[in-house]
């Protein structure tokens, strides 16, 4: 299979319109299931997000949050279970510290820390998921495009 030089037409169109692009890492047990519920409930939400399924928000290494931002994505969302609900006991609490660390580093280098969101969204909160994506898209629109999208040395 040859890899297309134009792998994501939808994403490129979004860029053309300077639409915010979001990468979301969602935990299998809560937020991903919540996103699924949003879909099966036919809730409308901004099409600006690409979802990556992870087993636990605690499995999201800072590396995976920083990589898309350096590539020029406008925001990264990490979604995990509510406090006390982690399927692996405390992965979401540990994720919370890691995300705080990443936000601190990004801010320290001049990238708005509000490009990285961490949210607790449960499997039953399809509505909350849809609202979160809408809210984040709107917030990123206000922030403007990620300046690193133009920085070839980064």
């Amino acid at each position: 299979m040859s890899l297309s030089t134009n792998p994501e037409p939808a994403m490129q169109q979004a860029e053309a319109a300077r639409e915010p692009r979001i990468i979301a890492f969602l935990c299998k047990w809560c937020t991903y299931t919540g996103a699924d519920l949003a879909g099966t409930s036919r809730l409308q939400y901004a099409p600006n997000v690409r979802i990556i399924l992870v087993m636990c928000s605690g499995a999201v290494d800072p590396l995976y949050v920083m990589k898309p931002l350096l590539e020029g994505v406008d925001g990264v969302l990490v979604g995990g279970c509510h406090a006390g609900d982690c399927h692996y006991v405390n992965g979401n609490y540990k994720a919370r510290r890691r995300i705080a660390l990443v936000r601190n580093y990004l801010e320290g280098l001049g990238l708005e820390q509000d490009r990285v969101w961490f949210r607790f969204i449960s499997a039953s909160e399809g509505r909350v998921f849809a609202d979160t994506i809408n809210e984040m898209t709107e917030s990123l629109r206000k922030l403007g495009p990620n300046p690193l999208a133009e920085e070839w040395t980064v």
Partner: peptide, 27 residues
Amino acid sequence: RYLSRAARKGAVRLPAEVMLYQLTRLA
């Protein structure tokens, strides 16, 4: 993929992950 990254930013620095490497060490 390198070329598609180059297309997106106009160029891609090589080796390609220098900044990510240092930020990951920091993390």
